[in-house]
Design a protein around this nucleic acid. Structure first.
Lengths: 129, 129
DNA sequence: TATAACTCCTGTAGTCGCTACAGGATCAAG
DNA sequence: CTTGATCCTGTAGCGACTACAGGAGTTATA
């Protein structure tokens, strides 16, 4: 059993974040030592690591929790997992598209904003009616 | 002079957001009618529209405010504008790259998660030590 | 003129996922 | 015995809104 600092190091989840997950019911409250300090099992730490990986993949915390629950249920519902993952991929693709359009717009706006312009064309465009 | 609802319609900035901008000092407090309602001039509305365009381009609000201030100063500092815009474009490019790597990772993880798998490979990977 | 429906006001709290304290208790090492 | 690390609870802050609650004033219709 490990103290929260060690659990943090082993899982890659920050101490404050671990306590936050507990408060929010993302992970169950761990055992406590007689001195009231939290004690984490290897299993608990595995759960935290699982959550960190989900977060690294950009899943919102609520979905990370769902995936965690799915991963701990007896009959792993691969179907549900895939559905969640695919909808997430779709979101990521959408966001990439949005940002690419943004980049194009910004490039165009700054293109004319080159050397020694008197009136700034970018500002002109932002001001226009 | 226009009431806040009309200013919202004309600028494309939500009513609550307009009041928020005022609270935060992003825009100056407008005139008030004798009945205490806010009154916006065409100029005020132009400012709001300017901010909306900056936000649409993904500038953080603080930078939007800086751009607005630059646009209203006597000698338009095109240099500063360009610097802000270029650093923002850089951020957008970085974010695009991150999301693309994310998408690749998710694609790889879900690739094996195809039809009728018994044990879900995605969960396996998330669980691994 | 009465009433309904709309718009506006202030102030506060919620969103998301942490992160950063404050103020204290406990523990390990020298 | 003291120093410094770690832990505890509880609360507030981040960014940029958004959504109320509870009230007041305005406009349109019957």
């Amino acid at each position: 059993m490990f103290a929260i600092g060690e659990a943090s190091r082993r899982s890659g989840v920050g101490i404050e974040t671990i306590r936050y997950y507990e408060r929010e019911g993302i992970v169950p409250a761990p055992e406590r030592a007689p001195n009231n300090r939290r004690l984490y099992s290897a299993n608990d730490i595995g759960r935290l690591r699982f959550l960190r990986r989900c977060r690294d993949l950009g899943f919102p915390l609520a979905h990370a929790k769902t995936l965690l629950d799915l991963s701990e249920s007896r009959h792993e519902d691969c179907q549900s997992v895939r559905k969640l993952a695919e909808s997430h991929i779709e979101n990521v693709r959408t966001k990439i598209g949005e940002l690419q359009r943004l980049e194009a717009a910004l490039n165009e706006l700054t293109a004319n904003c080159a050397v020694g312009n008197v009136a700034c064309p970018l500002l002109r465009r932002l001001q226009s009616d």
